[in-house]
Design a binder for these strands. Sequence first.
DNA 1: CACAATATTTAGGGTTGTCTAAAAAAACAT
DNA 2: ATGTTTTTTTAGACAACCCTAAATATTGTG
Lengths: 218, 218
Amino acid sequence: MYSLAEENYLKAIYHLEQQTKGEVSTNAIAERMSTKPSSVTDMIRKLADKKLLSYKRYKGALLTSDGRKTAANVIRKHRLWEVFLVEKLNFHWDEVHEIAEQLEHIKSEELISRLDKFLGSPDFDPHGDPIPDKHGNVKRTEKKLLSELNKKQRGVCVGVKESSSDFLQYLDKKKITIGTKVTVLGKEFFDGSMVIQVGRDQFFISKKIAENLYVQTN
Amino acid sequence: MYSLAEENYLKAIYHLEQQTKGEVSTNAIAERMSTKPSSVTDMIRKLADKKLLSYKRYKGALLTSDGRKTAANVIRKHRLWEVFLVEKLNFHWDEVHEIAEQLEHIKSEELISRLDKFLGSPDFDPHGDPIPDKHGNVKRTEKKLLSELNKKQRGVCVGVKESSSDFLQYLDKKKITIGTKVTVLGKEFFDGSMVIQVGRDQFFISKKIAENLYVQTN
DNA sequence: CACAATATTTAGGGTTGTCTAAAAAAACAT
DNA sequence: ATGTTTTTTTAGACAACCCTAAATATTGTG
């Protein structure tokens, strides 16, 4: 059982590893966590003692498979709670992060297993990011912007890029939500506008809309 | 915003005040919290500084109305989460306490307001205890054991006293859950057994059953 | 390669919340 | 009412986690 601080460090390092592909620097961690490098040194040393990451002085940190699994589990919890907040409690996609930051630290395997089932075992959170499975494995299929699709391609809406109130209300009106299937019927190269099919409806969308909607294309 | 430890102390003192009707002793708090009296002295001093309780050396603690309200709010959150765990995630009534102890500290007014609505603004938790409203007021109508009711009396099931797996399964089978209306059709004084009506069904229950089911009789 | 700039670690300290052991106050009993 | 028992507080210390300032290692540049 790891402390709140430990879990947050693991999560931060996990995310940083995906960007930097290699050791994560003390400074990078400090910046991401809004803390000081000296605090980071203390903590990564502690996490190294616990075999959650490997660390050599001045060389940065690299998660062990234990550490990676633990981090992925915290992220799994975070994203499942985000789905809960949006789908069940009708929060907007951009209001849930802070609350999920707290909920992700609740300790109970059983709780998460039941929550997952209750939510229908979703694969993506409301921002379109994949939810790791209980073993810490992530479906690493890239999410794309709807604007990257071409005529006749099909995608499942997995999240939004921007999440202004206006945009979310627009999506509501058009009945586009997570899991909605979208087909591109036409694409105008001049202005990037599209005609898409959503359920039985067909309608026109501007480039701006298409550039702010993430889809998954298997 | 209060710390986890502070909230737990307030909660414990709130509960103890209801039993002792008056100042709560250092030792009583220590025992309830499985901690040492010296730690309690430290903390109640701190809470007194924050005007959450009044404290005079060697005289014990008494919550201020601020402190009482804060405590009631933590208890509100605890009980709402318990309802969620039982009603939505299908936990048994006796499995939820520990998880709710964690969830009760999540900070977000909006979350609780939405959770409350999602659950249908319940008045009681799965153990039959009343859920304080958002102002910290508690419906102080006593819950009774079903066995205390007499012929023709009616009650709403609000919780269980014992919560063994066998008993919960029995209740399941008889379709008795929180909110179920129960009418006493007959009561045998010799052995305390009863005939009750639940929905359209009428059936016999033993004294043992009747003594483990809490009801609310407005 | 040497020196400046940058990154990282070390040293020493602060806060929160806990503990043990000892001192002080209150309650109890004869 | 006086001595004993119990309760409560004080004193001093510790662990987790964070900080600042100073020292040290690494990197980049001419």
